[in-house]
Design a protein around this nucleic acid. Structure first.
Lengths: 213, 213
DNA sequence: CGGGATCCCTTAGGATACTG
DNA sequence: CAGTATCCTAAGGGATCCCG
């Protein structure tokens, strides 16, 4: 059950034995957004081989990190409380890795769950608390998300819906979130295309979601 | 330079591409304690093949996480500021993994650097600040450490030295740190052998260093 | 059709020996 | 001491197939 071990008696070592295998943390990242079915996980991780996904799910289940819940006809995977304790670590990794992202290569994709986690990472509750409640309908690559900011609370759902601001963003969304690209410049250069709503609301978005470069 | 990639444009993904390869986080863990030479790293990671250590050092250097500093005759590896930003993440992983450690298997060892990181993780500055300054000379397995607690500050050095309390601990040190094993019980059962100093000081140690089970 | 299992091949990683 | 070089095993990638 325990993957390849390192022969050391140490908490860090144990952690990487449990979640350090290839793909494991990305599965956990997606499950942090919500319970998922096998096919949903596979769709969110297009390049994971099916046998690896199945193997990881078994290992993570044996480690007490996730649970396999058979519903009628379908199977749901969800994090256990112990698995949920990884949330701050995964978000911190996202914040740290954000700085090394550079520009996307053509084959790199943006998935709904990864973008949701990014938004959670970048969310600044204390800033949001001082701004009016706002709903954003966003599209990043193929990922459509409905982002609701209400006081210091953030809610991200897949799909669209009514919103104060609807926009589609290309890869330069990274520079917008890092502050390297000002909101008005982002619109001017076409990095962000506003589909509906006042363009000034993009500035509110950029203040609400920020990550250091 | 970039290791196997995942094809996703996401901070978490980038992070695991940079530090998710086998052994990488353990190398970083040891470098968090201080700059190390190639041989020191190899000694602290007894089961890492030499070619893998060399490969990881190159990859981590290319990623801007560590620096190769040639001194006269010897080469020193040290974390860059970007690499140092991983410290809270590594400590959090250690704290999370601590809960899944269980009892050590016979082949598992404790190294000086891993134990140093564990002590840093378990250190409670706010508790220590209310206790008198204390020096502990400790031995965990083969790892000898001199632990100085002064107010809210912690300093851990390899080797021995004068101390208020000297003790050697077996694997049950984990239960002492988690609070499952009371200090006096630890001494009574032989889990901790006090070599010098007042045995009551072990209680102070246990209050200063604590991790949830 | 969702949820996997099986196949074959490639490549990272383990063990050990060797070199500047 | 600080790494290469080599050889081999086992994990991972990719496609396909299977079963309820």
């Amino acid at each position: 059950m325990a993957a390849r071990d390192y022969g050391q008696y140490c908490g860090v070592t144990r952690a990487v034995e449990l979640v350090g295998e290839r793909w494991a943390l990305l599965i956990i990242r997606d499950l942090l957004v919500g319970p998922r079915r096998y096919g949903e996980l596979a769709a969110g991780l297009p390049r994971i081989p099916s046998n690896i996904l199945a193997a990881r799910l078994k290992e993570l289940q044996a480690a007490g990190i996730l649970r396999r819940v058979p519903h009628s006809r379908v199977v749901i995977y969800e994090l256990t409380p112990y698995g949920h304790e990884l949330e701050p670590i995964v978000l911190a990794l996202g914040s740290w890795g954000f700085k090394a992202m550079g520009d996307p290569r053509p084959e790199q994709i943006v998935t709904a769950d990864s973008m949701t986690v990014t938004l959670r990472t970048a969310f600044r509750p204390q800033v949001a608390a001082e701004l009016p409640s706002t709903a954003y309908a966003t599209r990043f690559g193929a990922a459509e998300l409905l982002v609701r900011v209400d006081g210091g609370a953030l809610e991200v759902a897949r799909g669209g819906g009514p919103a104060d601001l609807a926009f589609a963003a290309g890869p330069d969304i990274r520079r917008l979130i890092s502050g390297e690209l000002a909101p008005d410049r982002a619109i001017a250069t076409g990095a962000v295309e506003v589909l509906h709503g006042r363009t000034q609301l993009l500035d509110r978005f950029a203040r609400t979601f920020h990550l250091a470069a």
